[in-house]
Design a protein around this nucleic acid. Sequence first.
DNA 1: TATTATAATATACATTTGTATTTTAGTCAA
DNA 2: TTGACTAAAATACAAATGTATATTATAATA
Lengths: 200, 200
Amino acid sequence: MKKELTEKQERVLEFIKKFHTNNAMMPTVREIAKNFELSIGSVQQHLRALLSKGFLIKRGSLSRGIDFPNRKTFAQVPVLGTVHAGTFLEQIEDASDYIYINTDVTRNKKCFALKVKGDSMEPSGIVEGDTIVVSKGELPSNGDIVVALVDNESAVKMFYKEKGKIFLKSTNPKYPTLSSDDYKIDIVGKLIYLVRQYKN
Amino acid sequence: MKKELTEKQERVLEFIKKFHTNNAMMPTVREIAKNFELSIGSVQQHLRALLSKGFLIKRGSLSRGIDFPNRKTFAQVPVLGTVHAGTFLEQIEDASDYIYINTDVTRNKKCFALKVKGDSMEPSGIVEGDTIVVSKGELPSNGDIVVALVDNESAVKMFYKEKGKIFLKSTNPKYPTLSSDDYKIDIVGKLIYLVRQYKN
DNA sequence: TATTATAATATACATTTGTATTTTAGTCAA
DNA sequence: TTGACTAAAATACAAATGTATATTATAATA
């Protein structure tokens, strides 16, 4: 049911988006006017139209106080190291980098991210090079994918609990299922998000 | 070589980060002052310290003109619809939602996102429900994953070109390889990014 | 025809905002 | 003790910014 924009209004909205992308803040009325070589009043009218049509909202009479109706906010999540999805190798280390995740995903949970190595989770869509986001300490349900410490080495596995025993399964059948009978298993957290950047 | 911050300076910087996360813009001097119940001049001094120590930078004498030295910026990428990764079904439609991607990934390319259905790309880590980001019109190399129109229906496939012929391969062997001999194939764009949100 | 929406200009004004200046005070090290 | 740094306040001012108003013009429409 969104009302249509005129060509000019669309171009103004596009500029605002681009400006916001490049500068991480909204442009002022005059910054928009300067870009299009328009008068202040003209831009005001375009903004009024964009507001009334629901493409922008306002937050009081602040400077740069326009906003997108459903702009998302981001949480800074530290990338703590590498985790092996096959034979569980490397240890969690210090934060080296950060990724930014929508706060409606992280939901105030304590999160961290890891780079994935190995192929044990390939059938469930986790491949080498992926960055996974882990919700620290969250209790998993059967079938959830978790990061666990198996005899103090980190691994990405599918979680199952049966009669008080914990089983960690690789979705790749060439790796065995680990049981809490044979290993000391500590659940670090549950997978909530995954990002993959393709080579460019 | 980063100089250390005093406790108060650290708290001011934390507030600025938090404010920026919640509001997608930097606070004004007076907004900071109000938060800490401080005078304007006092906040000015803290900002001056944060600037000279390299934790903040300035962009001219603009309102909300402070910035983080290495802040990442995000591009708003429209989610245009659903694409079938098996038997290519649904058509690209209007923008319904947006996701936000680091600009060092999108790099000023024209991008859009699609929700994935089907299992034809499972062995390369693309599963149903994933959101893929496509760089529109970018020429793929052999082995790249692309979104293509095959007889005007959209599909996610692995791209190969040999002797002028285009081949679209599903990494799942139960789907056949498509050739430009048998189908009208238009490359829409190349996969540059993928995000997956696990059920919560 | 009158009306409405769009587009644009020009100007004025009030508020917000960044910045400069001055003053006071405590701590720490040379 | 002196100097440097930090912390804080109070005030003033110039620049940036949002907002209001009046005016003109065009195109589409009821």
